[in-house]
């Protein structure tokens, strides 16, 4: 397991956009830029640590109130501006520690801020914008729901520094009354519990795992390879429905989420029976 360093987001944002400054009017923790990607111009979004941030609990790569509402704003701009033109792809570069755990955040309704960002991403997807998430580092819990999990396609680096999970290990162990060691042992046989990205990939939620040699200082050829994968994912998205059902029809999902599929089939059958009876 790797500790969160908070450097990968900025590295990949720079690599893919050539820029490193936030747009004017936003906090320094949300990087946003439009940059060419294949034949498209794509909007790239990334949350990065900002030690100078206004909110003390959101200075180290957490997604807080400002980050969530700024992401929502930057996504909504794209929907608004592209109303009558080609729908710009939106690339969410993800390396987020967690949501912000603070009293100010709760008082000011961080749940709504997070929902607003997810609403914006989801609305953009429904409007036909290809949303591609590139997980370059950590993607935890509420932070990932806010920034990334509404995408049409999820891509992640096949690298030990990449981690997608519902809760950090120590907290998850405490709440489920286990030791960290026994949680790790369980993760070896129960894929949804695992903190390893290759186990996450087994769940069928990821579109693709991308091989990278040097995710914290990528050479040009590695950047180009990632760009190519993003372009392929955009093309794939444009030829597919705007919903998230691909996460349930992938080979991995057919195996790991077979109970989900049974549940859905049962509900469909019974729903139809009721309609005929009424």
């Amino acid at each position: 397991m790797s500790e969160y360093k908070g450097i990968r987001g900025a590295v990949w944002f720079k690599a893919l956009t050539g820029q490193s400054a936030p747009l004017s009017g936003g906090p320094a923790s949300v990087l946003a830029a439009d940059a060419p990607l294949g034949n498209d111009t794509a909007r790239f979004l990334c949350v990065v640590p900002n030690p100078e941030g206004r909110f003390p609990c959101a200075r180290h790569g957490e997604v807080g109130l400002e980050e969530a509402y700024t992401l929502a704003t930057r996504v909504r701009e794209v929907i608004h501006e592209d109303n009558n033109t080609i729908k710009r792809p939106i690339i969410a570069i993800v390396d987020v520690k967690s949501q912000a755990y603070g009293r100010r955040e709760e008082t000011a309704g961080i749940f709504l801020a997070a929902a607003a960002a997810a609403d914006a991403y989801g609305s953009a997807r429904l409007a036909g914008h290809p949303i591609i998430t590139l997980v370059v580092g950590h993607a935890f819990s509420g932070a990932f729901l806010t920034h990334g999990y509404q995408a049409n396609r999820l891509l992640a680096f096949d690298d030990d520094g990449v981690m997608i999970h519902a809760m950090h290990k120590a907290a998850a162990a405490r709440i489920t009354r286990r030791s960290v060691e026994s949680l790790e042992a369980l993760g070896k046989t129960i894929a949804p519990l695992s903190y390893h990205i290759r186990d996450y990939a087994k769940l069928g939620l990821l579109h693709k795992l991308l091989h990278v040699e040097n995710p914290e200082d990528p050479p040009q050829q590695e950047i180009q390879a990632v760009q190519k994968e993003l372009i392929t994912a955009i093309v794939d998205t444009r030829n597919s429905p705007v919903d998230l059902r691909s996460r349930m029809t992938s080979p991995g999902a057919l195996d790991m989420r077979k109970t989900s599929i049974q549940v859905r089939n049962l509900l469909e059958t019974q729903w139809a029976e009721i309609r005929h009876a009424q």
Binding site: S141, F144, L145, Y149, I164, H165, A166, M167, A172, I175, T176, A191, P192, L193, S194, Y200, L203, L205, M256, R257, S260
Partner: peptide, 8 residues
């Protein structure tokens, strides 16, 4: 948390 990533 017993179903962690599938719950998320």
């Amino acid at each position: 948390l017993q179903e962690a990533n599938l719950g998320l």
